[in-house]
């Protein structure tokens, strides 16, 4: 049985969000009925603001509030090193490590032949144009270590190495705090292949 009017509308809207099923949507909608009007207004306003104010950086395609994102505007960042990632959320994940001081380029996805996503649907042309126009010496390919991410990294390495750049790929292997016994063969094999001197 469906609820009436605004409650049902809210359940349906929540149900369209990624990872939210019908039951979760219903629980969220009923939670909204219990919170203060001011809290609900603040939530609604935050959603409207993010749609009206946030855009993509014209240079790296990270999320930004101005023409260029905070990282591209920062003169302390090394302009000679570009880290290529699939999505803006990957930029945040790498920034949290505080290990990388260069700039980024967000592709907007990964090559996925099975899904019909090819290089033309990603911001690869923009990356090549950036490399040609800016003083870039090294590219770090930080796409995900899955089939799509590996295919994208392989494609980019072949394309960009011919331009005389140093192209590197982030390492993959065992997680810190992990246990060798439970590691899968692919991950453990890569950890060995990428071992380094101490």
């Amino acid at each position: 049985m469906a609820f009436e009017g605004p409650v049902q509308d809210l359940i349906e809207e929540f149900g369209r969000l990624p990872g939210i099923g019908p039951k979760s949507a219903q629980r969220l909608a009923f939670h909204m009925l219990t919170i203060d009007t001011e809290d609900a207004r603040r939530l609604a306003n935050a959603i409207v603001q993010v749609k009206e104010r946030v855009r993509f950086c014209v240079r790296c395609f990270n999320v930004a509030e101005q023409q260029e994102c905070r990282i591209c505007r920062d003169p302390r960042r090394d302009p000679t090193v570009l880290c290529v990632v699939e999505e803006p959320r990957d930029v945040m994940a790498i920034e949290k490590t505080a290990e990388f001081r260069g700039r980024y380029h967000v592709l907007g996805g990964a090559i996925s032949p099975i899904d019909g996503v090819g290089p033309d649907q990603l911001r690869i042309k923009e990356l090549v144009a950036r490399v040609g126009a800016e003083d870039v010496a090294e590219l770090v390919l930080a796409t995900n270590p899955n089939i799509e991410g590996e295919a994208t990294a392989s494609y980019l390495a072949r394309l960009l190495k011919s331009m005389g750049l140093r192209v590197s790929r982030i390492a993959s292997g065992l997680p810190v705090g992990g246990d060798l016994e439970y590691a899968d063969e692919v991950t453990l094999g890569r950890a060995f292949a990428g071992r380094r001197d101490l």
Binding site: S112, P113, I147, S154
Partner: peptide, 14 residues
């Protein structure tokens, strides 16, 4: 693993 690591092979495998 070699099919995963090379774009041309990966496209054919897909």
């Amino acid at each position: 693993a070699p099919v995963r690591a090379d774009f041309a092979l990966s496209a054919c495998g897909s």
